[in-house]
C-alpha cells in the first residue's frame, strides 16, 4: 500500500477512534457529578474536547492524503509482508501476555530468564555462550540490586526462592 493510501486509512481509523471515545468511552467511562455548575469544570469536559480533537486531526490527515494523492503520481505498490516476521511478532505478543500472567507465580527472575530465552529463540544468535551467560547472570544481578540494595520486594514465585 502506498504511503498516501496508508495515511488516508490511518486518518479514517483515527476519526473512528476519536468519535468512539467521545460518543461511547467518555459517557461510559467518566463519572460526572450532577451538581457541576460550570460546564468546563466537569470531569468529562477535557476528555471530550481531546477526543474530538483526535477525531478532527484524523479527518485532516485523511483529507490531506486525498489531496496529495491527487497531486502525486506515486505508483501504488503493495509491499510484501514477511510472514515469518509476523509469526515472530505474534509469538512475542503471546509471550508478553503469558509473562504478565505467570511472572509472579514463576518468580520475576526466572520469568525474565524465560523471556530472554524466548527472544533469543525468536531472533537467533551466533553468540550462544555469551547469550546464555547473559540470560542467567543479568536477571540475577538485577535481582541482587533491586532486592538487596534498593529493597524492592521482587516476586520470588512458588518454585525456587532466591536468598
Amino acid at each position: 500500500m502506498s504511503a498516501l493510501r496508508t495515511d488516508f486509512w490511518i486518518g479514517i481509523g483515527v476519526v473512528v477512534l476519536g468519535s468512539a471515545l467521545a460518543l461511547v468511552a467518555v459517557p461510559e467511562g467518566v463519572v460526572s457529578p450532577r451538581n457541576v455548575r460550570i460546564a468546563v469544570l466537569s470531569p468529562a469536559f477535557w476528555p471530550n474536547i481531546l477526543a474530538w480533537v483526535v477525531a478532527l486531526m484524523g479527518l485532516i490527515l485523511a483529507l490531506q492524503s486525498l489531496r496529495r494523492r491527487k497531486a502525486s503520481e506515486e505508483p501504488e505498490t503493495a509491499a510484501p509482508m514477511p510472514r515469518r516476521g509476523l509469526l515472530r511478532l505474534l509469538a512475542l505478543a503471546v509471550g508478553s501476555i503469558a509473562f504478565c500472567a505467570f511472572a509472579t507465580k514463576l518468580g520475576l527472575v526466572w520469568a525474565s530468564m524465560v523471556a530472554f530465552a524466548v527472544v533469543l529463540l525468536l531472533t537467533g544468535t551466533s553468540y550462544r555462550i555469551a547469550a546464555v551467560a547473559v540470560a542467567i547472570l543479568l536477571p540475577l544481578a538485577l535481582y541482587a540490586f533491586f532486592a538487596h540494595v534498593a529493597a524492592v520486594p521482587i516476586p520470588q514465585g512458588m518454585f525456587v526462592r532466591l536468598p
Binding site: A115, L120, T123, T125, S126, P155
Partner: peptide
C-alpha cells in the same frame, strides 16, 4: 551483538518498570 543486546534491554525494562510500584500491572 544486537541479538544479546535486545533481550538484555527487555529484562532491564521489566525490572525497571516493576520496581516503581512493585506491581506486575505496570509491566
Amino acid at each position: 551483538p544486537k541479538s544479546v543486546l535486545a533481550p538484555s534491554v527487555l529484562v532491564l525494562c521489566i525490572f525497571g518498570t516493576y520496581a516503581v510500584n512493585n506491581t506486575i500491572f505496570d509491566v
